[in-house]
Nucleic acid binder design. Sequence first.
DNA 1: TCAAATTCTGACCATATGGTCAAGTTGAGG
DNA 2: CCTCAACTTGACCATATGGTCAGAATTTGA
Lengths: 204, 204
Amino acid sequence: MSRPKAQTRIQQKNSEAILEAALDVFSQFGFRGATLDQIAETAGLSKPNLLYYFPSKEAIHAALIARLLKVWLDPLHALDATGDPVEEILDYVRRKLELSRDFPRESRLFANEILQGAPRIQTAFTEELKPLVDDKAAIIARWMDEGRLARMEPHHLIFSIWATTQHYADFDVQVRAVLGRTDGAHFAEAEEFLITLFRRSLTP
Amino acid sequence: MSRPKAQTRIQQKNSEAILEAALDVFSQFGFRGATLDQIAETAGLSKPNLLYYFPSKEAIHAALIARLLKVWLDPLHALDATGDPVEEILDYVRRKLELSRDFPRESRLFANEILQGAPRIQTAFTEELKPLVDDKAAIIARWMDEGRLARMEPHHLIFSIWATTQHYADFDVQVRAVLGRTDGAHFAEAEEFLITLFRRSLTP
DNA sequence: TCAAATTCTGACCATATGGTCAAGTTGAGG
DNA sequence: CCTCAACTTGACCATATGGTCAGAATTTGA
């Protein structure tokens, strides 16, 4: 972070390996549960070498969070005020569920962070997330005023979409245990279910 | 756990204080992030004294989990096959949301555990949770067969209820940040929203 | 009241962990 | 092929942490 963007080939490669390894470890054990030794070993580097690229454990975590925040908020950004209300929201559900399926570690990284009071991303909440959500909630409210969506509290609608989609990444072990499966086939079922759930309650 | 149930007045009081403190600390920092010193200080005991009542950190955690599992599964147990289908499920939603409101630490304790792969409660999943969910899912499926509920995949319906209700406990900081509130008034809104959401999609 | 059982504690231990540093190795440009 | 900067590491440090133990303080029951 404070270090200038990776420039040499080696810097590029190792920084990437570190962030990749850190994502593995942080998402599995949380910030305090993760150790530099674990991250270094996963990345195939020695601990001092790891600390040559990032000044501290904090810095690695911060770099990860910053990098992922954009990807994470992207689907909500894509919600288009000029599209068809119901389909726009269902598309958002689909995109969020795809993130859970394709980037479960990222989802768990955020979940871990928020669960523990989000001590390291408070500013992102108030400065990025809240304005974005307020903006999109206003669009949804307008659609409801126009009678193009059934009336519901827009913020809570967004919460329910986050909750239901992220559940499949964050509580993966529970989902698998309850369904008695080890494959990932339940994502297709989940999509069908969620689309049905939200379509029925949103259609005016 | 291995120790016989607290018998003397002092044992009763101190065991209780320890579990209460441990709930605070574990739910906030996760298993690996929590320290015995923290728990001991919160409980108002010395660390060696803490270890006089529980043989290890693991044991404290295990005792907590065991004690909470019952409370946590209770609302689902209460789902009654002879009741009115839509109202039974909406009552379940209400009870789960009440748990999130009244026992957020318990919710976060479980969330932390599951997020990290549920290494310490795997057996509870397969031996208690799965059979219970399968049982209730069968009841819901029967209601749908009888045309008394709109058709949806029952397991995923249950997941969506867990996800949406627990979201308000587990992601509390995020909810507050996005709503821009510090009070707990959003629980009433959440209830209204969730009841509407599920009623619309479940009514045949 | 007094001995036995229970409860409590200061001091201590082994290990883990985030981080440092001096010195060595490797790679890139001239 | 030589030099200088970039990269890498073994050894090390201070602190934190889970846990132990001998003995002191307190409670209990006869």
